[in-house]
Amino acid sequence: MAIQRERSGRKTSPVGKEFTLDRRDAVPALIGKHEDFLIISGLAGTSRDIAALTRDGAHSYTMAGAMGGACMIGLGLALARPDKRVLVVTGDGELLMNLGALATIAVLNPPNLAILCVDNGHYGETGYQKSHTSLGVDLEEIAIGSGIRATRTLSAEEELAEGARMLRDGNGAAFVLLRVKPTDPPGFKRNMDPAACRNRFRATLLDSLQPDV
């Protein structure tokens, strides 16, 4: 027997929250001047977005594994560098692997950390299988329930300006869910050596290669 559940909130596919934006336009439009941020990106799609945008810049750390870690790397960096604005750019699949990170981040609520989740509802890297967000899971609702106070879902071009403001300003952690259609991210050849990327990130930020700074 099917169980009917009462819910006060959203329907599975709220009107105006469809996956129609193109990530190739929407991600650069939202981030704007990328040099203003230290950027952590999670896995294939968003790492390609960020590598193309920053031309594989040393102020970005683009992951290609350790799935589920992007938000927490961002938290550690934000706590270490309160003088810098930290932006985590990750996908729905990567975020779904460690939803608890949203709760951990909400509890600390660092003012210099923003999370941009590029939600295409699919696992693009493995052949575009549907993710949970195509099947009724709403990551903004999860962020709200985790205790993150500044949240927004963007699914139309006219909403991007408000989203861009949230990534840059605020007195607590921000979560912006960008709904995009399931199309390929830009191609860009980036450095895939995680140790080399660590060294260049630290060298640029800390002006030294010593682990002792």
Binding site: M72, L75, L79, N98, G100, A101
Partner: peptide, 23 residues
């Protein structure tokens, strides 16, 4: 910073981020 985690793997990623920032 005293950081309570929901699962230990969060701490692994956190410490990598700390290191990127020199902490």
């Amino acid at each position: 910073h005293s950081v309570a985690l929901t699962t230990e793997e969060e701490g692994v990623a956190l410490l990598a981020g700390a290191d990127l920032g020199g902490a």
